[in-house]
Amino acid sequence: MGERLTTGEICSRSVTIAFGETPLDGAARLMRDNHVGCLVVVDEVAGKRIVVGVLTDRDIVTAVVAPGLDAAALRVEDVMTTDLVTAREDDSLIDLVRTMRRKGVRRIPVVGGQGELIGVVTLDDVLDILSQEFSLLVGAIDSEGKRERQMRP
């Protein structure tokens, strides 16, 4: 049919990462310093960064701050989500949106064939792409009207 957007084409390849043993308060500072709400947690295996979890600002609030725990006494692996939702580089945009909806997530690490980190895609990335597509549709509607006026003044 034509152009098919893939997850690999829209994901950000610049990912802020952490390791399981990273102190949680350090991870929170890393989020603040990099202006992100999510860290992809990785292990180094044979020179590759393998995705093992995700830590979000919401994880910190709900699992640490709300119950009054000491963030300085915890590590990322104590709080991170290990029930991973990932996408593959060649997944279509539609497959990605369906996964986000089905799993109830806003951010998804993008992985290669061996589970290695490729990037991360967010709901904001998807909305940006879709807004561009809607703009193209609006342009098509506008062009149709102009064409009609030219052909039948």
Rank of each mutant, 00 (worst) to 15 (best):
T22E: 12
P23W: 02
P23T: 02
L24V: 08
L24R: 03
L24K: 02
D25S: 13
G26F: 02
A27P: 01
A27G: 03
A27L: 08
A27E: 05
A28H: 03
A28F: 08
A28M: 12
R29Y: 07
L30H: 01
L30Q: 08
M31H: 10
M31Y: 09
R32Y: 13
R32S: 12
D33T: 07
N34W: 10
N34D: 06
H35E: 14
H35Y: 10
V36L: 13
V36R: 11
V36D: 06
V36G: 05
V36M: 10
G37F: 08
G37R: 14
G37T: 10
C38Q: 08
C38T: 15
L39R: 06
L39A: 03
L39F: 08
L39W: 10
L39H: 06
V40K: 12
V40P: 11
V41W: 07
V41K: 07
V41M: 10
V42L: 10
D43G: 05
D43V: 09
E44I: 14
E44T: 13
V45R: 15
V45E: 15
V45I: 15
A46T: 08
A46V: 09
A46C: 12
A46I: 05
G47I: 12
G47E: 09
K48Q: 15
K48V: 01
R49L: 13
R49K: 15
R49E: 14
I50W: 09
V51Q: 06
V51E: 09
V52L: 04
V52K: 14
G53N: 10
G53K: 06
G53L: 09
V54G: 09
T56H: 11
D57C: 10
D57P: 12
R58C: 11
R58I: 09
D59H: 11
D59L: 11
D59M: 12
D59I: 09
I60G: 00
I60D: 02
I60Q: 02
T62G: 00
T62C: 05
T62M: 14
T62Y: 01
V64W: 05
V64I: 10
V64S: 05
V64H: 04
V65D: 00
V65I: 15
V65W: 01
V65F: 00
A66T: 14
A66S: 07
A66N: 03
P67E: 01
G68C: 06
G68P: 06
G68S: 05
G68E: 03
G68T: 04
D70C: 01
D70T: 00
A71C: 03
A71Q: 09
A72M: 03
